[in-house]
Write a protein that binds this DNA or RNA. Structure first.
Lengths: 235, 235
DNA sequence: ACAAAAGTGTTGCTCATACACCCATGA
DNA sequence: TCATGGGTGTATGAGCAACACTTTTGT
């Protein structure tokens, strides 16, 4: 309570980056995210969300994208603002920091391994180390938002390639939501939304009947992206 | 495009304050919000959302509450962060401003009229004047959020007193959602959520059968308030 | 008695779940 | 031909919209 008041408010932008990867023990897919090790006080040595100070000439979303590129070398398949965190006590020292946090989906294949430097490491969401600042709260909230949004939105797209089978799409849902779905019912529900397009092609090389490949209908918006994309007009 | 880059980023907190009031023409309830007239450039004379600069010793939510008190003299019945707006071009001059916007529900009765100074005025949401900055976008988004959240949350509470009849609650929903509901079905749906408590009392003085008075069950959270209230744990 | 809104009952539709069953391919 | 997952059909049940009907007050 005897803390000094900071003289100014600093503005940072951080990003919670999600990717789907096979779990080390089971061969199921699970959620992973990259963290960076802090190289200075406060919380030196602890893991933290990737981010940086907001410079006046950068857009908020641009800053989030830049962070993402720096940390993973990837382009987000989905990016959305999460929340602005700004309580007085969130920066262990006497500075006042407001962090505007974004969350992103990428599909982590080959490229992701590239930037596996000493200071960047991927962690399974349900096996995180101790985090710096209030970043644990932030991650928990981001995971909650991802799970919730997966229920009513089409963001699973962000974890997949251009074309995919219904089984792959289902596995994404199962990994994120943490439960399994009846393949038959999942198929019908997804197709009923009309957001998928049958490419006519099939995936071969499987040891069973070759499944159809689908593509997302680009005419449909994947989700409500916030206030800036005008997709929420009413008639 | 030939704009100078600002030297720093300024942080503001604004609040979209909603109240339910009888419409001037029809006697239905409609959404209203207070705006303040700008007394300096840019956009001098235009109407804008109430707000102010964020000082280092104030919490984001505290700042939003303070704005609300200054403008309306009221305490919010509901308050939630809406979004952080931070595009480069949102401040007509060459300054860079990031606004963290909150939205609030109040019930505007006697007290509200008190602060009806020259610079504060209430407007019907579907009859707004031209607003300063990107505040029109912000208001539209806030209205969308209010409508959406009303569908699955219990925030209607924010517009009502301690006890209320089901008809009053239904009228709030109808005003915000913009359509009418079957009283019979509305009753069942609301009661099925288990969020209402029968006070046992009745409202008298009506020219028909006296309706029961209900109270919200305070044990149930009204809505997911964001990341800071830990109500989104899973078992 | 009558109007008007509170409150209850009932029916039919839609949609999600569960699960039985056929299809097509590799081994 | 068998195993495996892709894909289709269908019965059951929950929940909601629509609307008929009964109840209780003031006038």
């Amino acid at each position: 309570m005897g803390r000094q008041h900071a003289e100014r408010v600093d503005l940072a932008v951080s990003t919670v980056i999600f990717a789907l990867r096979p779990s080390p023990d089971s061969d199921l897919m699970t959620l992973w995210l990259p963290l960076v090790r802090r190289i200075r006080e406060p919380y030196e040595g602890r893991w933290a969300l990737p981010g940086g100070w907001l410079s006046p000439e950068h857009d908020l979303e641009t800053a989030a994208r830049a962070t993402l590129g720096r940390t993973t070398g990837l382009t987000p398949r989905y990016l959305e603002q999460l929340y602005a965190f700004g309580t007085l006590d969130r920066s262990a020292d006497d500075t006042r920091v407001v962090s505007i946090v974004y969350w992103a989906l990428v599909h982590a294949d080959e490229a992701a391994q590239a930037i596996d430097s000493d200071n960047v490491e991927w962690f399974a969401v349900d096996d995180l180390p101790e985090l710096a600042f209030d970043h644990r709260t932030i991650v928990d909230y981001a995971v909650w938002r991802l799970r919730t949004k997966m229920e009513y939105s089409r963001i699973a797209h962000g974890f997949l390639g251009e074309t995919f089978t219904l089984a792959q799409l289902r596995q994404v849902h199962e990994a994120v939501r943490g439960c399994s779905f009846d393949p038959a019912n999942f198929r019908r529900q997804i197709l009923a939304t009309g957001s998928l397009v049958d490419t006519g092609e099939h995936l071969t090389g499987t040891s069973h009947r070759p499944p159809r490949l689908y593509r997302y209908d680009t005419a449909v918006q994947p989700a409500d992206h916030g206030p800036l994309t005008p997709s929420k007009e009413q008639a």
